[in-house]
Amino acid sequence: MYLTKSDIENLERKKRLNIINSVSGIKPANLIATKSKNGQTNVAIFSSVFHLGSNPALLGFIMRPAGEVPRHTYGNIKETGFYTVNHVPITIVDRAHYSSAKVDRSISEFERCGLTEEYANGFHAPFVKECHVKIGLSLVEEIPIAVNNTIMIIGQIEELIIPDRAVDEKGYIDLSLFNTAGISGLNNYYSLKREASFPYARPDEIPDFGT
């Protein structure tokens, strides 16, 4: 499946809601990729991507305090306004994990960690070829969080790349098909398995659980 921003806006409401709610995953392991104006690429792993809304289709993530450590992801997003979020499959968690190392700005983590840049439809920022679910975003807002000096980055989804077989007629995405990884803490990785699926919860349809 490939959807532009216009395609997403024209989807039936419930299908759009289901796709955008599903696309962020559960405590997901994501690679966020950027490219500077002069062509220097950067990719780094994040576990803070979250759903913010389906119309418009928005995702957020949290940037940690910069301090004395340069944040190349943040710098490139501010400079160009574009970035991608890529779900990490278990098969590449080792390469994804080491993208968090603080390498020099002149070194691309794509090359250093054995990951492949992939470009689609003229989008400025690279996608990660080894990932299956790929999201292209444009920066719409950043919100400083004073309590811990972090920044909430809010992006609007411009492009979605998802294999057709993973999306059902209602828009639900089966992330278990791609062995999508989850993160606990900073360095513990878990595989994702779909255990159950339930209908929308309505008060008069709550089962008798024997309580």
Score class of each variant (00 low, 15 high):
31 L>Y: 03
52 L>S: 06
82 F>P: 00
62 I>D: 00
4 T>D: 14
67 G>Y: 02
113 C>Y: 03
37 K>I: 00
13 R>I: 13
19 I>S: 06
116 T>C: 05
23 V>C: 10
179 N>V: 01
61 F>H: 05
38 N>E: 14
56 P>H: 05
46 F>I: 06
79 E>S: 02
113 C>I: 04
117 E>A: 02
154 I>K: 00
55 N>H: 12
209 F>D: 00
192 L>G: 06
107 I>T: 15
127 F>C: 05
54 S>P: 03
157 I>Q: 02
18 N>V: 07
102 K>R: 12
60 G>F: 04
42 N>L: 03
75 G>C: 04
97 H>Y: 11
2 Y>E: 14
11 L>C: 05
185 G>I: 03
15 K>E: 00
24 S>L: 01
204 D>G: 09
65 P>S: 05
96 A>I: 07
171 G>I: 08
26 I>Y: 15
4 T>P: 12
49 V>L: 14
43 V>R: 01
180 T>F: 12
143 I>R: 14
4 T>W: 08
29 A>D: 07
152 M>A: 14
78 K>P: 01
152 M>N: 04
170 K>Q: 15
78 K>A: 03
109 E>H: 11
84 T>G: 02
193 K>D: 11
33 A>Y: 04
195 E>Y: 13
127 F>R: 08
154 I>C: 12
163 P>G: 04
20 I>T: 02
134 K>H: 09
79 E>G: 03
209 F>S: 04
151 I>V: 15
69 V>K: 15
101 A>Y: 13
202 R>S: 13
197 S>Y: 09
210 G>C: 09
96 A>T: 07
156 Q>I: 12
48 S>C: 00
178 F>E: 02
33 A>G: 04
30 N>M: 11
207 P>N: 08
44 A>F: 07
128 V>D: 11
106 S>L: 00
144 P>H: 13
39 G>W: 01
57 A>I: 04
62 I>G: 00
163 P>M: 10
36 S>R: 08
102 K>A: 15
19 I>E: 01
57 A>D: 03
83 Y>K: 08
207 P>W: 01
60 G>N: 08
127 F>D: 02
45 I>S: 07
17 L>N: 10
116 T>L: 05
56 P>G: 09
124 H>S: 10
34 T>V: 05
57 A>N: 06
176 S>D: 15
27 K>F: 09
23 V>D: 03
12 E>F: 09
79 E>L: 01
118 E>R: 12
180 T>V: 15
135 I>S: 01
172 Y>V: 11
38 N>S: 15
164 D>W: 08
186 L>Q: 10
157 I>R: 03
208 D>R: 08
150 T>A: 07
72 H>R: 14
89 P>T: 09
137 L>W: 06
